[in-house]
Simulated assay, not measured.
Amino acid sequence: MFSNSMTLWAGALLILSVSLWSCTTAQSDDAADCCLTTSNRHIPKRVVTSFTIQTGNGACRIPATIFVTKKGRKLCAPFPSENNWVSKLIDHILATPVQNPRKQKGKKQRIQ
């Protein structure tokens, strides 16, 4: 009887230690926001505000271009060297001047 209870406790201790180890490992990994696939579907210039380049190194496995829309959506497109329309859209974003926020009508702005 002693042998069976020791085996049971050893098994429970092993399961507990493995589950705690896996929880700490999962919490220490930084979650990466990656494109897992890309779409060759053209994205209209008028909806895109910015972009980032995802290299195939590190946590993200595939090279891609991540376009951010005015509504905050992230759209995954092919890497710029792989597709001409992606390069043209990047050039358009880089050429577009940054807009200043609009002044509110009827209110004076305080300068500090």
Rank of each mutant, 00 (worst) to 15 (best):
M1D: 11
M1T: 07
F2W: 13
F2C: 04
F2L: 15
F2E: 14
S3A: 14
N4F: 06
N4M: 08
W9M: 06
W9D: 00
A10H: 11
G11V: 03
A12D: 01
I15C: 12
L16P: 03
L16D: 02
L16G: 04
V18W: 08
S19Q: 06
S19G: 02
W21D: 07
W21I: 13
S22W: 08
S22M: 07
C23E: 15
C23Y: 14
T24Y: 15
T24G: 02
A26V: 11
A26I: 10
S28R: 15
D29T: 12
D29E: 15
D29A: 13
D30N: 09
A31F: 15
A32W: 11
A32Q: 12
A32M: 14
A32T: 06
D33A: 13
D33W: 08
C34Y: 00
C35L: 04
L36P: 03
T38P: 03
S39M: 05
S39R: 14
N40V: 09
I43N: 02
P44K: 05
K45P: 03
V47H: 02
V48W: 03
V48F: 02
V48N: 02
S50M: 03
T52G: 09
Q54E: 07
T55G: 08
T55Q: 05
T55E: 09
G56Q: 10
N57C: 05
G58C: 11
C60Y: 05
C60N: 10
R61N: 11
I62M: 03
I62K: 02
P63H: 08
A64T: 01
T65M: 06
T65I: 05
I66V: 10
F67W: 02
T69Y: 08
T69V: 04
T69L: 03
T69E: 04
K70H: 11
K71T: 14
G72W: 04
G72N: 12
G72D: 05
R73P: 00
R73Y: 13
K74Q: 13
C76S: 01
A77P: 00
P78R: 06
F79K: 09
F79R: 12
F79T: 06
F79L: 07
F79S: 08
P80A: 05
P80T: 02
S81L: 14
S81Y: 07
S81G: 11
E82T: 06
E82F: 10
N84Q: 11
W85N: 09
W85Y: 06
V86I: 06
S87Y: 01
S87P: 01
K88E: 07
K88L: 04
K88V: 06
L89W: 01
D91P: 00
I93F: 02
I93Y: 00
A95F: 01
A95R: 09
Q99M: 09
N100P: 10
N100V: 09
P101Y: 07
K103D: 09
K103G: 07
K103T: 13
K105H: 12
K105I: 15
K105C: 07
K105V: 08
K105P: 06
K105F: 13
G106E: 11
G106D: 10
K107N: 10
Q109P: 06
Q109M: 12
Q109T: 15
R110G: 04
R110P: 01
I111M: 10
I111S: 12
Q112V: 14
Q112K: 14
